[in-house]
Write a protein that binds this DNA or RNA. Structure first.
Lengths: 392, 392
DNA sequence: AAAAATACCGGAAACGTTACCGGAAACGGT
DNA sequence: ACCGTTTCCGGTAACGTTTCCGGTATTTTT
C-alpha cells in the first residue's frame, strides 16, 4: 500500500479520489491528504536570466543591498558597491524591466496610435516622436487604426492594458466618439493628440495650421494669375478638411474673388473621385484654371489625369497640393505644396508628453500650432514657360 | 520626552541619531529602535487600478478563485464564475499585463528593428508584420537603427531588457558583427531576419530573391534592345548589392554580352554619387544605353539628371529600378521596377516567428525566399515612342 | 565613559498575478 | 454506515524588483 508522506506508515492510508489525473490518498492518523507524486514529469530547468539574488548569493549579501548598489543609493559602502557592480557585469545581469515596472508602475513605454504607418506623413511623425522620447529613455509601441474606429478603440485598450505611460494619438477618419481616450486622462495618463484632434478631450494637442497653409497656397495661386481656383476638399466630417476650406475661402474673399460652390468638391480622397471631380469641372461653362487639392495623393492623381487629357500644367491648369512628401519634388512637373513638417509635429507631441510627465497635475493642456511652409515648384508657376523645361 | 512605541513608557528612551532626516530613538528596556513618525507626509492616495483582489474582496472570495474564474479554469462553480465575471465587469477590471508577464515570463510583445521607418519598404513590411502578429495577440515594439551599428546594438539590448518574446530584425548597412543577436538565439528567444540577413546567425530568414529579380530586370532590358547596360550597384559590403550584381552579370553572360567593369559602379546610394556615375558613363567612348539602378531612389535621381541633360528616356537611355514604391507609378515616365512585396516579406517573417513560438526546440530554422515581380512601365520600353506620350 | 550620531546591511513586505496543492463538503456506491 | 469520489474553494509561494525600517558596529561628541 501507499506510505503516508508524513508518518511514513502505510496503516491508516486510504484512497481519496482522483485529482487532476492523479490518485489521491488520505492518512487517517495524520489527518492529511496527499497525492501520488511518482512520475513528476521533469524538473524542467527553464532558462534562467541572472537576477539580483544571483548576484547577491555570489557575494553573500542581501538582494536589497544589490539593488541599492546598482541604483546608486547612498546607504552602501563604496567597496561593497564596486564588488557588486563587478559581479553583476561578470554575470551579465540585466534588470528585469517587468518587475521594475510592476513595482514602480511605470513602464517607460509610450503608445502611439496612427491611422496608417505607410503614409509618409505618419512615418515621419513617428520618427520625430521616437527621436525625442528615446533620448528620455522611453520605448515606443505603435498601433495602426487603418482608419477604422473599432480598430482604434481596441488599439487604445491594448495600450492601456500594456500600462503605457502615455498615449500619442492621431484619430482615424471615422472617429467621432472619443470616450475611449477619456479614461486615460482621468487616470492621469498623459494623452497628446496630434494632427487630427478632438476638442472633446481636454488634452495637449499639436496641430498644423491648416487655415494658414490653405490661405497661403491659395494666395500664391492668385499671385500667379489664377482667376478661377477650385478646391478638392476632403470629407466634411474631418476638421482639417473644414479648416483648409476656410483658409481657401478667406484668401478668395480677401482678393475680391467670388466663392463658387461648383468649385468646392468634397471627396473621400479616392483617386477615382478626384478624376471625376476634374471631369465635372472641365465640363463647366467656366472651368477652373487652378486646383488646390488638400490631399497630396489627389494632387498627383490630378496631374496624371490632366496630362492624359492633354492639358498643360501649370499654364492651362495650375495644381497645388498639401503636404510636402518626398515625391512632390521628384515628379514632373514638381508639385507646389505646403511642407507640413511632420517630423516637427512628432517631436512637439513627444515633448508635450514629456513635459506632462514632469509637471504631472501642474501641467496645463495647451495646443501647439505648427505652421506649414509654402514650397513653390513648377506646377503653380503660371506663364513662366516652365512646362517641361527643367531648370530646377 | 518620547514614549516608546512598544512599552509606551518614556523612561528608558534615549536618542539614537538621525536616519533619513528623522530623529531616531532607542528604548533600553524594550531593546528597540524606532523613529519619530510625527509628520508622515501624506497617505498619498495613488490612483488605484482595479485588481483581482478588489474583485475578490467584493464577493468575499480568494484572489485565486477570481483568477480561476476569469481564466476559464475548470475548478470553479459556474455560479461563482458568473458572479465574479459580473463584478469584474462592473469594476472595470483590467488584468495587469505586467504582473502576468512577470509570472509567465511571456510579454506577448515582439521587437522589430529596422533601419528607417520612413522608407516605404520598411513601413510596408511593418504593416505586414503587424497584421499577422496582432491576430495572434502580440504587440509590436519598433526601433530604428538609422543605419547605425551602434544604435542597432542598443536597440536590440533595449528590446531584450523589455523581455520581448521575439525579435524581427533587418540589419543596418553598417552591421558586420552579429554578436548582439546571438545571445537571443542561445536564450531561446526566436529571432527572424528579413531583407538584410546574416549567415553567421542560425535563425529563420526571409529574403527577397535579389539574384532572380536582377536577372529578370536585366533580361527585360536586353529584350528591349539595350546593348550596353550599366549597373548602379550599392556598397560591396551589402549582400543584397552583391546578389543583384551577380544576377545582372549572369543575364549578360547568358545573352553573350560582355561584362564591362566600367559599367559597374558601386555607390552608397547618395544622389550626388548617382549623378556623378551618370556623368562618368556619358563621358565614355561608348556610353551605356540602359541603366539598372539597384536602389529605387537612385533610379529617380537618374531620371531627373537625364532630363536635365536633355536625354530621352527610354529611347536614349532606359532606366530600371528595384523596389516598386508607390512613386514609381506616379512619375513621368513610369519607372520599370521589380515589386519586392515588402508586405509579404513582413507577413512571412511574422509567421516564421509564430511558428517558432509554437514548435520551440523542434523548429528548424529555414530561409524563405520571396520572389519579386517585374513591373514594366515606360522607362524601359525602348523604341515604342512612349516618351512623353501618355497612354498609360 | 556614556550618549549621540553615523554608516551600512539584512529582513520583510509589497507590486498583481497564477500554479500548485490541501481541505472540506457534497455526493455516490456498496 | 462506510468508504471512495467529485467538486470547489482557500492558502501559499513564486515571478524580480524596490522600499521601508530595524539592527548592529563604528565613530564622534559631550
Amino acid at each position: 500500500m501507499m506510505k503516508c508522506t508524513k508518518c511514513t506508515s502505510a496503516d491508516a492510508v486510504m484512497r481519496a479520489g482522483f485529482i487532476r489525473g492523479r490518485q489521491r490518498f488520505f492518512c487517517k492518523s495524520c489527518d492529511y491528504h496527499f497525492t501520488d507524486n511518482k512520475a513528476l514529469p521533469a524538473p524542467e530547468r527553464k532558462r534562467h536570466q541572472t537576477t539580483i539574488s544571483d548576484v547577491a548569493k555570489v557575494l553573500g549579501v542581501a538582494p536589497s543591498t544589490v539593488s541599492r548598489a546598482l541604483n546608486g543609493h547612498s546607504d552602501i559602502n563604496s567597496n561593497t558597491r564596486q564588488a557588486i557592480i563587478d559581479v553583476a557585469r561578470q554575470l551579465d545581469y540585466q534588470p528585469n524591466l517587468l518587475a521594475q515596472s510592476l513595482k514602480s508602475s511605470e513602464t517607460k513605454t509610450i503608445g502611439v496610435v496612427i491611422p496608417d504607418i505607410e503614409r509618409p506623413f505618419f512615418a515621419t511623425a513617428i520618427s520625430g516622436i521616437q527621436q525625442v522620447v528615446t533620448e528620455a529613455g522611453y520605448r515606443v509601441m505603435i498601433c495602426q487604426s487603418k482608419e477604422s474606429y473599432e480598430v482604434e478603440v481596441s488599439n487604445v485598450q491594448a495600450l492601456i492594458a500594456s500600462r503605457v505611460d502615455g498615449l500619442l494619438i492621431c484619430h482615424s477618419r471615422e472617429t467621432q466618439n472619443f470616450d475611449h481616450v477619456k479614461p486615460l486622462a482621468c487616470r492621469g495618463i498623459p494623452v497628446v493628440h496630434f494632427d487630427r484632434v478632438s476638442n472633446e478631450v481636454d488634452s495637449a494637442k499639436v496641430i498644423l495650421d491648416d487655415w494658414n497653409g490653405a490661405f497661403n497656397v491659395t494666395e500664391h495661386l492668385i499671385e500667379q494669375g489664377a482667376q478661377r481656383i477650385a478646391i478638392l476638399a476632403g470629407p466634411e466630417s474631418l476638421l482639417i478638411s473644414r479648416n483648409r476650406l476656410a483658409g481657401y475661402q478667406h484668401a478668395l474673399k480677401r482678393n475680391q474673388m467670388p466663392l463658387r460652390p461648383e468649385y468646392e468638391v468634397h471627396i473621400e480622397f479616392q483617386p477615382e473621385e478626384a478624376v471625376a471631380a476634374l471631369d465635372a469641372w472641365m465640363a463647366l461653362p467656366e472651368p477652373p484654371d487652378a486646383i488646390f487639392a488638400i490631399n497630396y495623393t489627389n494632387a498627383f492623381d490630378l496631374l496624371v489625369a490632366l496630362k492624359k487629357r492633354g492639358l498643360r500644367v501649370p499654364d492651362d491648369m495650375a495644381v497645388v497640393g498639401f503636404g510636402d512628401e518626398f515625391m512632390a519634388s521628384m515628379i514632373e512637373p514638381g508639385l507646389t505644396t505646403v511642407d507640413l513638417h511632420p517630423y516637427r509635429i512628432g517631436q512637439q507631441a513627444a515633448r508635450l508628453f514629456l513635459e506632462q510627465m514632469r509637471l504631472k497635475e501642474d501641467f496645463q493642456p495647451r495646443t501647439f500650432v505648427i505652421s506649414g511652409d509654402l514650397v513653390i515648384r513648377q506646377s503653380s508657376l503660371k506663364g513662366k514657360g516652365n512646362y517641361f523645361k527643367l531648370e530646377i
